[in-house]
Simulated scan of single mutants.
Amino acid sequence: MAATEAAGSDNAADDPKTLSVDARTLRGLAHPLRIRLLNALREFGPATASGLGNRLGESSGATSYHLRQLATYGFVEDDPTLGKGRERWWRAAHSDSSIDTNFMRDADPEVRGAMNVVLHEIATTHAQELSTWLGTMHEWPEEWTQNWDLSDFKIRLTPELTSELAYKIHDLVNSYRGRVPEGTEGSAMVRTHTHLFPRPNA
């Protein structure tokens, strides 16, 4: 999950900023609120449990509990540079996650169930983000409302070519990383969603 996306692409697994999720950590992530908390920390930076609760509309007790669970599985960690007294700040331990899609066929039903929860929550997040953009795009400058995309394509491919296309898309998106320094006037964090899946012929 890229940033968010809480599932990342498998070809990012060797990146030290990417957490390669195994069966144990997958089960630790498989909760809608944990995925939302991780996404928020990756996108908006360090925060307290109460701050995250306000952002996500959850109680600080719930966010605190699930942050501790995420820490147990290596997704988040304390940020010692922030906070005063008993105030505890959290940060994402990695910028992305890489999840092996073969977990969908794992012999352990708990692993398959965890993968199902994670994938469906990611899909829900994608839909919510797009709906939010469509509902608020009138608030953005004209430069942004003229430069965005909502497209879909239908092409006949084999599984091998589908994988090749996915890798090429990921490589293309990653080639734009670092081209715009943080704080550049007129820039914004752009979310890119990719979905490739087969459809029945009839």
Rank of each mutant, 00 (worst) to 15 (best):
E58D: 08
P159W: 08
P80W: 03
Y73F: 15
D10Q: 15
N116W: 08
V190Q: 12
H126P: 02
K154E: 14
G53N: 04
P46C: 06
A127R: 11
R112D: 14
A13Q: 15
A49D: 12
A40T: 04
E77V: 03
E43H: 11
Y176A: 12
T4D: 13
T192Y: 07
F44M: 08
Y65A: 05
V117E: 06
E185A: 10
N54W: 02
M1F: 00
R36Y: 00
R105Q: 12
F44G: 09
L165D: 08
F75T: 00
F153E: 10
K154M: 10
M1H: 05
R88V: 03
D14E: 09
L134H: 15
N174P: 01
E121C: 13
E139K: 06
L172S: 14
E121N: 12
G186Y: 08
P200W: 07
I35K: 10
D106I: 06
P200S: 11
F153D: 10
H170P: 07
L161F: 13
K84W: 05
R179D: 15
R42K: 09
Q146D: 12
H138M: 04
N39I: 00
D108P: 07
A166Q: 14
H120W: 00
I99E: 04
T25Q: 10
L119K: 06
R91I: 04
E43K: 11
M189K: 02
H195Q: 12
D100Y: 10
R34Y: 03
R86D: 14
E110R: 09
E58M: 07
T72K: 08
T194P: 08
A202T: 06
G178D: 10
A166P: 07
L157P: 07
G51L: 01
H120F: 01
H31Q: 10
K84S: 12
W90R: 02
F153G: 06
V190Y: 14
E160T: 11
A23D: 15
S64A: 13
E129M: 13
A166F: 14
N54L: 11
P181G: 15
G61P: 00
R199C: 10
S187F: 02
V190W: 13
Q128G: 11
L19K: 10
Y176W: 14
A3K: 06
W89S: 04
A92S: 11
L56M: 03
L150P: 02
T145L: 03
F197R: 14
R68C: 00
E87F: 05
A114D: 11
P46W: 06
S64T: 03
F103G: 06
R42I: 04
D78A: 09
F103D: 08
L82T: 01
L82Y: 02
S131M: 15
A92D: 05
D106L: 13
G51R: 02
R36M: 03
R199I: 10
H94G: 04
N116L: 07
I169W: 15
Q146F: 04
D152T: 13
Q146H: 09
Y176K: 14
G135V: 00
Q146R: 12
E58T: 00
P16F: 09
P46K: 04
V117D: 06
R91Q: 13
Y167Q: 15
M137C: 09
G45Y: 01
D152N: 15
R91E: 07
L172H: 13
N201F: 14
Q69P: 01
H193S: 14
T63M: 01
T25L: 04
E164G: 09
V118L: 13
H126K: 11
D14A: 09
F153C: 05
Y65D: 08
A47N: 10
G57D: 05
T101M: 12
D79A: 08
V117F: 02
